[in-house]
Design a protein around this nucleic acid. Sequence first.
DNA 1: GAGAAAAATCGACATAGTGTAGATTTTGTG
DNA 2: CACAAAATCTACACTATGTCGATTTTTCTC
Lengths: 206, 206
Amino acid sequence: MPGTQPARRRRATERKGDLRERAILDTCESLLAEKGYEAMTVGDIAQGAGITRGALYFYFGSKQEVVTALVARTVEHLWERSRATAESDDPRQAIAAAMRRTIELWNEHGLVMRTAIDLSLTVPEIGQLWSHTADLFTGAIVAVLERAGVPAGGAPDQAAAMARALCWMIERSFYHASQESPGSLELASAACEHIWLTCAGLTRQG
Amino acid sequence: MPGTQPARRRRATERKGDLRERAILDTCESLLAEKGYEAMTVGDIAQGAGITRGALYFYFGSKQEVVTALVARTVEHLWERSRATAESDDPRQAIAAAMRRTIELWNEHGLVMRTAIDLSLTVPEIGQLWSHTADLFTGAIVAVLERAGVPAGGAPDQAAAMARALCWMIERSFYHASQESPGSLELASAACEHIWLTCAGLTRQG
DNA sequence: GAGAAAAATCGACATAGTGTAGATTTTGTG
DNA sequence: CACAAAATCTACACTATGTCGATTTTTCTC
């Protein structure tokens, strides 16, 4: 079962199968955009990748596994990008930077991210992947809130609980906005940013 | 196609079919709790309702239609409850009341609400139902924010945009919390309430 | 309460998609 | 080259869906 274990890859030459695997994932992403998860069949993916259904089952055990691998690939990318971002010391700047990065990520990978969210309930592995991603994001929000002076702790008015709610707010706002126009993404982002700032006690009028 | 048009009901005596229709919806709800949407088959629902698949198709054209009707029934109930609630003049009280009511609704109907959210993308009719529900809720938040002094308007720091983000925050927080324990629902609710209050400028320290 | 119209139910069929298995071809390696 | 591993194909069995025509049951009307 390739696709589940990307480890044990200590081979210099790239197998033909690696090519195919990537082709399958790429095709899957296209089809997801074109016809959506439900309508997309294993036969469609195979055809798009230039093989038969039978051959596809050599790589992945089901449509769900294909999509899981696609989500894993995408989410890996998100994590990398997050790790590579230097956190600012100034909370205001940190928030602005985080929101800017979030817009980029949703613009580039919105489709797969939405798919991951939709399938989180149905496909446990995707659920884990995504909930881990959310945890990372929540952690970043906690850090910013605390540096801005919000007390640490899990009570409703302390950083951890607030960060969790803010994380869901951002997820859902972007989920919906990214289905509409890039413009509405900007607007949603600005609204989320303002609320985040307010929660951190960083708005002028407060 | 019954189940789509609950109008034109000007009949005193209750048809036998109305009974069955309700039995189908009830069974569907049970099965949803038991095995989830995907695993639940049309045959299962029919069996639970005491008829054959063929007979079920007399009432509903597909599994999706059954679930849509179930969501419609539930959502109708939500709307009624909302309409029946008197809005307080004091924003603080209004917010507290809204959150209390929201907890009740999720405790009672969490399963169907989660299902509605999950299927919003896949089943357009459910999407409409749910987005209308979200609009109602957003409207209520707007009203409270404005009464608390937040300027009206669609800019990121004005009532409409903020209310939308807050609505998604609440939806998503409850969605997740209601999958866990009633306790985590309370916590999530308290966090959302605190953020809402903060956005309305109603917290002491601000 | 008898009979006709409408409502409800059934069983059988056709279709579409899934996953599996065995045979076969391609590819890399000593 | 020969042989093992990788990759691919075709055919099959299974499950669930949705449709149809025939049949039975309910309901309405006089």
